[in-house]
Design a protein around this nucleic acid. Sequence first.
DNA 1: CGCTTTTGACCAGCGC
DNA 2: GCGCTGGTCAAAAGCG
Length: 222
Amino acid sequence: MASGASLNQSLFEEQEMIMSSQLGIFPFHTNMASSNFPLGFNQPLKTLSPPSPLTTLSDHSTLTKQKEDFPPHFSGLPQLLSLQRSASNHWAWGGLSDCMSMKRGGGEDHHHLGVAAVKMKKIKARRKVREPRFCFKTMSDVDVLDDGYKWRKYGQKVVKNTQHPRSYYRCTQDNCRVKKRVERLADDPRMVITSYEGRHIHSPSHDEEDSQGASQLGNFFW
DNA sequence: CGCTTTTGACCAGCGC
DNA sequence: GCGCTGGTCAAAAGCG
């Protein structure tokens, strides 16, 4: 996993490695039509950092998608997308934590998911069953990108070694357990890291056009 | 009035 | 076992 990361690497480099190896990365470009944004994003996004080279680790099976593998409306999406799943076809548990803890320096690394309420104990076993998840970074002025779904914020936390709080959102749809987390890079506040966990059991709540694109994407990834 | 956001507290997991 | 940290809850406040 990220254990091979040199402590001398910049935080950004470390993140690049982590995300490239375990998580989906979506490089956005200014010339991308909104319909080409993953997950139905229709916010005007600025140019993302240069596409990082695909780096895969051998611990898990790796799924690498090329541009031509995407649905037709993905025509604007560059080639870079690497999704890594465990043998059970779910994301390695450490993946998201790695992503979200990337701002922590040095060897500090915590792979855990806090579960608070007593009743949460009852679903602990279910949480152990890894939800499909991925995260990606975008350069955007807004924290919450419009992905076609309605989200309710249920928490905000200031994580260590960063001045930017992490926000926690849950899909407002009944029985939909999808969550996402949004935070900004410590070393580059223009970069927004969005992490999704779980599968939507419904279509996006936006208008028809956006819904089509988003649902298509949703089906593709989740 | 209903929905969303804010925020302090609580809890679990991990490292030491 | 203890302390630290992240994730979640839930009451209060805010907003349309």
